[in-house]
Simulated scan of single mutants.
Amino acid sequence: MRIGVPKEIKNNENRVALTPDGARTLVQAGHEVVIQTDAGLGSGFANADYEQAGAMLVSAPESWQADLVLKVKEPLAEEYPRLQNQILFTYLHLAGVDPNLTQRLLEQHTTAIAYETVEDSAGRLPLLAPMSAIAGNMAVSVGNYFLSHTYKGRGVLLGRVLGESQGKVVILGDGVVGRYAAQRAAGIGAATCLMGRHPERASEIAQTLSPTIRYRLSAPDSIAEEVQTADLVVGAVLQRGGRAPIVVTEAMVRSLPPGAVIVDVSIDQGGCVATARPTSHADPIYYQYDVIHYCVTNMPGAYPRTATIMLTQATLPYVQRLAQEGLAALVADPAFAKGVNTFQGHLTCEPVAQALKCPEAYSPLASLLSVRSR
């Protein structure tokens, strides 16, 4: 199979979808790997590294002329003309991005597989997890940074100073992002409240992360109570495939102390804070109601080498199966097949159909594959 790797064009997106070692593995298995010239530079991988691995350096258009295209982020408008009847494997977040992308994927009969909705046999999200872990760690670091008076923040330094805990962090969502954010906040010594919908997890979190983390059941009243005294609020709410629910209302944002910071990691899926809107690494924050909002849609892109290595480690086994078996890999593995968001002109992810307010457009993938195999 011919596998293409374009250079990412999103603002300050320096990750690449495949490391040279990953390319070597695919080439040694008999596949043709073409990668856009300079695609790996932002992650510290030189063109020569890919050539030595057996990949071919090509232009941007040629990198899309492949049976399987690997990317990190969703195609942007200028890339839409390059979509065709191919397999696209990337983070899509169709419920939270321009709906025109979904329309173009359908029109071009692209089989679009989203990293973020691929499941494993235990129902986990193995391809979302590495980037969630990085974003969770980052959330506390960037929140602490923008709390400085330099950025009109509260001037609170999160952490322990001469043995005394400084600052309060409230984290909404106890998935991978939330847990890593809570572990980082508690680790530096900030008062940490992790809010989730599974009270039975409280003891596990205390044992595996930190006994100082206070777990509280997430509900409108409890969220409102906690955020009004928070220095940093981290939005880490996930609805698989669908738009993130709004759990922090505009009134709650107004109640935050002036100079508090919100880091909405859920912004890829539309955001879980009512006042959140997408930002970029070039212009990461804005102010509303004297509260600093950080809503960068590709947070792990700030640490591209780590992110690229971790992403390739997670995705490569799936890429190998697609390259070797084609669409038959999806028939054989229903958990893998949950990653398919569009298939040959059909919308096959029900949460995306609901988020785009076209539930009637949803078609179960299993029935389409069944018809195709006859």
Rank of each mutant, 00 (worst) to 15 (best):
V352H: 01
N341E: 07
R179N: 08
E13R: 08
V237P: 01
T25A: 12
S59P: 09
L158D: 03
S148K: 06
G196W: 01
V69K: 12
Q86Y: 15
L125W: 12
P245H: 13
G159K: 01
A332H: 05
I87Q: 02
S63I: 07
Q320M: 15
N12P: 02
Y115F: 12
R104V: 13
G339K: 01
K152H: 13
R154Q: 14
P351W: 02
D231I: 01
K73H: 08
Q344H: 08
G339F: 02
E78D: 12
V291R: 05
S218H: 03
F146I: 04
Q183W: 05
R24G: 13
T102R: 08
T315P: 00
G30K: 11
L68D: 14
E74L: 04
E62G: 13
A314R: 11
G301Y: 06
A202M: 08
I3G: 04
E350R: 13
A366N: 10
P126W: 13
F343K: 02
P304V: 11
V331A: 09
T37D: 09
A236S: 04
Y80M: 06
Y50K: 06
L57Y: 13
I285A: 15
V247E: 00
A323N: 08
D231M: 02
V273L: 08
R160W: 05
M310T: 11
R254L: 14
F343N: 01
A66M: 13
D21K: 07
D283M: 12
L125G: 10
I246A: 03
S63D: 10
W64Y: 14
I134H: 00
P99F: 02
L105S: 08
I3P: 01
A129N: 08
L232Y: 05
Q65E: 15
L347K: 01
M56C: 12
S63E: 06
A182C: 07
Y80K: 03
L217V: 09
T249F: 07
G301F: 04
R184W: 02
R154P: 11
N341M: 05
S373T: 15
A224C: 09
V140T: 05
A260F: 06
M56A: 15
Q207K: 14
L330A: 02
I113H: 04
I9G: 11
N137H: 03
A182M: 07
A230V: 03
M138D: 00
L41M: 12
L322A: 09
G143K: 01
D21T: 10
N14E: 12
L311F: 07
P245F: 14
R197G: 03
A17I: 14
A139M: 09
L172W: 01
S165A: 14
H281N: 09
A307K: 00
E78G: 05
G259H: 11
K152T: 04
E250Y: 10
P126H: 13
E200R: 12
T308E: 11
D49G: 09
V72I: 15
K71T: 00
S367F: 09
P304I: 10
N85V: 08
V233C: 00
A353G: 05
L127V: 07
L368H: 05
Q313T: 13
E107R: 05
I267V: 10
N100D: 10
Q86W: 14
L26D: 10
R2F: 11
K357N: 14
R160T: 02
K168A: 11
S59V: 07
L88N: 08
F343C: 03
Q108H: 12
L101K: 04
